[in-house]
Design a protein around this nucleic acid. Sequence first.
RNA 1: GGAAAGGUGGCUGAGUGGCUUAAGGCGAUGGAUUGCUAAUCCGUUGUACUGCAAUAGCGGUACCGGGGGUUCGAAUCCCCCCCUUUCCGCCA
Length: 421
Amino acid sequence: MLDIRFVRENADAVKAAMANRNAKVDVDAVLELDSRRRVIVAEAEELKAERNRISKSIGQMIKEGQNAETIKAQVRDMGDKIAAFDDELRDIDAKLRDALLYIPNMPSATTPVGKDEKDNPVVRSWGEKKTFDFAPVAHWDLGAALGLFDLERGAKIAGSGFPLFTGKGAKLERALIQFMLDLHTEEHGYTEIAPPFMCNETAMTGTGQLPKFAEDMYAVPLDGLYPIPTAEVPVTNMYGNEILTQELPICHTAYTPCFRREAGSAGKDTRGLLRVHQFDKVELVKFTTPETSAEEHEKLTLDAERVLQKLGLHYRVIELCTGDLGFSAAKCYDIELWAPAQDKWLEVSSCSNFHDYQARRANIRYRNEDGKPAFVHTINGSGVALPRLVIAIMENNQNADGTIDLPEAIQPYMGGLKKLG
RNA sequence: GGAAAGGUGGCUGAGUGGCUUAAGGCGAUGGAUUGCUAAUCCGUUGUACUGCAAUAGCGGUACCGGGGGUUCGAAUCCCCCCCUUUCCGCCA
């Protein structure tokens, strides 16, 4: 969430930023609530100060044996007025907070201005497109033929979009997870977290999924819980309402399944593993000072890229322009893998710097050089998401005979297996 | 699911309606003393919002797990909820 003081003092900049995002935000309504709130606060507090003074003197009078009934009645009336102010204040506070929760983050000064995904610049790429002397087969056909997954049976028990992996396909999931966790913990300095796979409303609000994106999530209303759409939610909110005393940056990696309703995307990329309701992901999360967040963001992105380099997969990094930037992000790089049978780039990681936006929502602070509490910057990115990684491995490494070569880096995790099929 | 005991500042731990502006201790920090260290002594020590000054300052309000209530006045009394611990039951 944005700092209301920032909005108050930079209203024009906020409006311009929202326009660049194509976000419909009524900044003036927020400013109006804010100024109304401050009037009420001033009046209510003045009354309270007076009541406190008189109450104290009542205590004194009673001790001296004087009758205080008249003055008590007066203060009782004051109490009614105060209650009325407090009621209005509660109401305005709720409205203001709600309004602020629906305002997306300010894009970073370095984020390119653009209208939509067509304006996202390519930052760099690694490797080259593989050439085939046969027509590459789509992963869904390869997977079915090799018995790596059984999407029909997954659909039978849960619905379409809930993949069911079998045999070596299931083992490949487990192997990739372990490979990535080992890489990030042993070579990149992240501490592993195994968090809850469900979070409450407070946590979901802290990272920005709620209240705006309730429809994108599964929910367990009976218990007030939501299956997590990403490990970002538990791993960021684990420090909610804390003043961190650890040395920054704090770097965490976590494997979790992710659950997404993908509301509004029905009918798009539905085949195979392209877009599913449940998938596995290894996430990277950092908590930094404002001074180092830009640098740590770059490093985190490189850490995610290392996964793909080690697996020998051709990828590119694009930077999201203001019009395509996610709700909570100030700056974001997407990493995309090349999938030859799809003839498409597939997003496997979004590495975002949220500045203090999530930290303010979740109330995560540290002590700055003056020893004063200040909001941390949060950064996270997938390192990386499994389904499209699996797609890329399958489609890029397929042979004419329908077998799939396993990248060397993953072979130790597959019990030395070099090839599927 | 049942029962009991708890939740107070960075930590520990007092506090059952007004002298609490949350005691005392520890820690932290500034200073004095000291050849250095230790010890000792003196001072400081939270968060948020808000008003005025607009850099350091001065005032107000709120905050003792969360939310309601009683009262002129609540850390303290009442109600609901959450969490922790222990015991019982159920369970992988």
